[in-house]
């Protein structure tokens, strides 16, 4: 079953075609890996799916429902959360406040209540505990190290219990033992039914973790399949080595 499906997405910046007719299907309740050389359009695809950029043409659908060019807040309400390649946290808020920002509340009265309700606070601490940031909860987030900020962003995304989580290079700048910890966390959430789409250059990380790997090249899908199959696909190797044989495929 597919959860997010993109069809013939196109996006160009001036003369650069960041997405040139990209069609892909991400599997539901799976850990999808999305790989591809630098500049192949992975981040752009994330941006288009989550409403940070508008597509020039093509469709994005979530469980069959069209969400093409929906606004970021609408996409989030549909249950899609994401992290950024270059972390985006709220640097002048505390770590705990950062996590609370992502906790959804509906209605005027709920919005007017204090931000740290007991139930939310408990969950927030639990989420922080999972990434090992609980002790830093009262600190200003901008003072955290880069890796810690990466973990914080991961933490607050999970706070809202999205059904799909898009991670853009979660392993960048995070030390190996911590990385294993993140993998465990991803697996645990996945077993609770959360779908992941993970962009990552660390091949070990991707191959170990993912159920399905999709490969992008020059703005469109090159191939996809189980990790072993993709790993041994000569076309993928060529794409990475830069000979670019599959132009416009």
């Amino acid at each position: 079953m597919s959860v997010i499906q993109v069809t013939d997405l196109k996006k160009s910046y001036g003369g650069i075609h960041a997405l040139s007719g990209c069609s892909m299907t991400f599997e539901d309740k799976a850990i999808n890996g999305l790989i591809g050389p630098n500049g192949s359009g992975k981040t752009t695809l994330f941006n288009v799916i989550t409403g940070y950029e508008t597509a020039d043409s093509g469709q994005v659908s979530l469980r069959g429902q069209d969400i093409t060019n929906a606004k970021p807040d609408e996409v989030f309400e549909q249950g899609i959360g994401r992290t950024f390649q270059i972390t985006r946290i709220f640097p002048r808020l505390t770590v705990l406040e950062n996590v609370h920002v992502a906790a959804q509340r509906q209605g005027f009265v709920a919005q007017a209540r204090g931000w740290d309700s007991a139930a939310e606070r408990e969950r927030a601490m639990e989420v922080l505990e999972f990434v090992g940031l609980a002790r830093l909860a009262p600190e200003i987030a901008g003072d955290l190290s880069y890796g810690q900020q990466k973990l914080l962003e991961f933490a607050f995304i999970t706070m809202a219990r999205p059904s799909v989580i898009l991670l853009d290079e979660p392993a960048g700048g995070v030390n190996p033992s911590l990385l294993r910890h993140i993998s465990d966390r991803i697996r645990a959430l996945n077993s609770e039914g959360v779908t992941f789409i993970i962009v990552e250059h660390d091949m070990e990380f991707v191959m170990r973790l993912c159920d399905q790997v999709l490969v992008m090249h020059q703005g469109s899908a090159l191939t996809s399949g189980p990790p072993e199959q993709v790993r041994s696909d000569p076309a993928v190797l060529e794409a990475y080595l830069g000979t670019g044989p599959k132009e416009g495929s």
């Binding site: 807040d73 709220f90 808020l93 609370h100 931000w115």
Partner: peptide, 21 residues
């Protein structure tokens, strides 16, 4: 308030805040 926390989030990174609903 929760609402106010949202305002502070907007101050720090408006697009990010929007992406968190």
């Amino acid at each position: 308030s929760k609402y106010g926390l949202g305002l502070f989030a907007i101050r720090d990174d408006e697009e990010r805040a929007r992406g968190l609903g």
